[in-house]
Nucleic acid binder design. Structure first.
Length: 515
DNA sequence: GATGCCGGGAT
DNA sequence: ATCCCGGCATC
């Protein structure tokens, strides 16, 4: 999906470039009012097109043959058509920012079409009369297919020509830029939330204010697809939203940062609902964020350099991979494509432990590790933890298991019989107590024979811990030797079978007269 | 053979 | 889950 979007964007970029170049070389009659703004936009457009082309070259080297899906643009297009002068300007201006590209792409096309349309004098006249209708129709068409839109080039050009006129007449450059940036931040935040949610659907936690997730959430989403390791955290995410778990190439995974934005930015109707539904999951990354150490990994092929700061990794990419020298402060955001965040999470370890043994009192605090190490280490830690925890648990758990296994209703029906049992359990009071104590209602008493017999009917009895450590199931295989004491059958006789304990009636181990 | 009760079927 | 019984082990 991301790759396809990327490919599409690249394709658009190339188209834009061509059109922009053509527009730049031709004189434009009329439209003086829009001339300056259009020129600005064209410049931005060309700049962006260059950037896109550059990216495209890189991407095509690694991911050739991606087909651009139409729905991507369709999703973006409504925003384009409804955008006023500010919006368009914002989109154009975004070309100077790191987050501009997705938003700008459709607009670039529009703008390009606009410019081209100005070179076609006969088209605008056709449109002036049916302006509103064409806008709606074009919007519908965009939803259907962009390719079709392109084929119907003439029509679209006319439409965009109209829009451009409206836009250019309302442009107020300085203000628009500032406010748009602010608005963009909100949208970016929402996009980040979407991104993070789409990549970490596993965990659920109470909702938290979305704005707080600005730094953490989207980054979480970003590094997930780019991870090459297999920590518990990553592996959990992978099957949830990634159809292809294989290691992504740098540009592809890096694109995950930005390619999630368009929905939140461009389409307020559909995607807003989607976003709102997803926002419930947003707090998860934040929760993790608190205990994460963030590293930045270069996704450039065969690089994989990891740096501690975003600036560092950006500089690394710019200088080493993008071949840009100097002007380290300036960033068009392209570096973002080639690095991702790696979160060294200590929570993942503890989470794994918790998931393994929720009720375990053991707390394993593993040092921060890389994902690949995390998994193994988690297992090791768990193993150790379990080993450690077995000691406290072993005092009670086996008893519970055993009781569960053998505790039939007929065995627990008559706690009243304790006095009677006391008569028969003088020999069982020395060790069976340790693990039979839990049965408050004397339920466990019937169980004792098994252990007693395990120890041997003889008087030699194993130490209590032996009984505790060895699950009773080991004994189950062996048939228990008959108890020495009299049972209901013998006490009451066949004629008084009604007086038998239930167990005896059912030919089960007598619960009344326990050995 | 009598007794105890496990394993499993029937409801 | 409850009730019941076949069948085995043990005495």
């Amino acid at each position: 999906m991301q790759a396809r979007r990327l490919a599409k964007r690249s394709l658009l970029g190339s188209r834009v470039q061509g059109l922009a170049a053509a527009a730049g070389g031709l004189p434009r009659p009329g439209c003086k009012e829009a001339g300056s703004a259009a020129t600005q936009l064209r410049l931005l457009l060309e700049e962006d097109a260059r950037s896109v082309m550059h990216r495209r070259r890189e991407h095509e080297l690694e991911e050739p043959g991606h087909e651009a899906p139409e729905e991507d643009l369709c999703t973006q297009s409504p925003g384009t058509l409804h955008m006023d002068g500010q919006g368009l300007l914002k989109a154009g201006r975004k070309g100077s920012g790191s987050k501009r590209e997705i938003v700008a792409s459709p607009l670039q096309i529009d703008e390009t079409h606009n410019e081209v349309s100005q070179k076609v004098p006969d088209q605008p006249s056709l449109l002036l009369g049916t302006r509103e209708e064409d806008v709606k129709m074009a919007e519908t068409k965009r939803h259907n297919c962009v390719y079709e839109h392109e084929k119907d080039n003439t029509r679209s050009i006319c439409l965009l020509e109209q829009k451009r006129k409206v836009v250019s007449s309302n442009i107020d450059v300085p203000q628009a830029r500032k406010s748009s940036e602010e608005a963009e931040m909100d949208k970016v935040t929402a996009a980040m939330v979407l991104t993070s949610l789409s990549t970490s659907p596993l965990v659920r936690s109470p909702p938290v204010r979305p704005n707080e997730g600005l730094n953490g959430s989207w980054k979480d989403g970003g590094y997930v697809p780019s991870s090459t390791g297999s920590s518990g955290y990553w592996s959990w995410n992978a099957p949830s939203d990634q159809s292809n778990p294989s290691t992504p190439s740098p540009p592809l995974s890096a694109d995950s940062f930005k390619l999630f934005r368009p929905p939140a930015q461009s389409d307020d109707g559909i995607d807003e609902a989607e976003a709102s539904s997803l926002l419930f999951d947003e707090p998860i990354p934040r929760k993790r964020k608190n205990s994460m150490k963030v590293m930045f990994k270069c996704l450039w092929k065969n690089c994989g350099k990891v740096l501690g700061t975003a600036a560092g990794i950006q500089k690394h990419i710019r200088t080493v991979h993008l071949g840009r020298t100097g002007d380290s402060e300036f960033s068009d955001g392209e570096e973002d494509f080639y690095y991702t965040e790696i979160r060294l999470n200590t929570d993942s370890v503890s989470e794994g432990l918790i998931s393994v043994s929720p009720g375990s009192p053991c707390v394993a605090s593993a040092p921060p590790l890389f994902p690949s190490q995390d998994a193994g280490h988690t297992e090791t830690a768990c193993a150790k933890a379990e080993t450690k925890c077995m000691t406290p648990l072993s005092h009670s758990a086996p008893t519970t298991l055993y009781l569960v296994h053998t505790d039939h209703a007929y065995q627990a029906t008559s706690p009243v019989n304790i006095p009677g049992s006391a008569k028969f359990t003088p020999n069982g009071n020395n060790f069976s107590i340790s693990w039979q104590s839990p049965p408050v209602t004397f339920t466990g008493t019937p169980v004792s024979p098994k252990h007693t017999c395990t120890a041997g009917t003889g008087e030699s009895k194993p130490p209590p811990h032996t009984v505790m450590s060895s699950p009773p199931r080991a004994v189950i295989g062996l048939r228990k030797p008959r108890g020495e004491g009299k049972k209901c059958r013998k006490v009451y006789g066949m004629e008084n079978r009604d007086m038998w304990c239930t167990a005896c009636r059912w030919k089960k181990a007598c619960q009344r007269f326990v050995d």
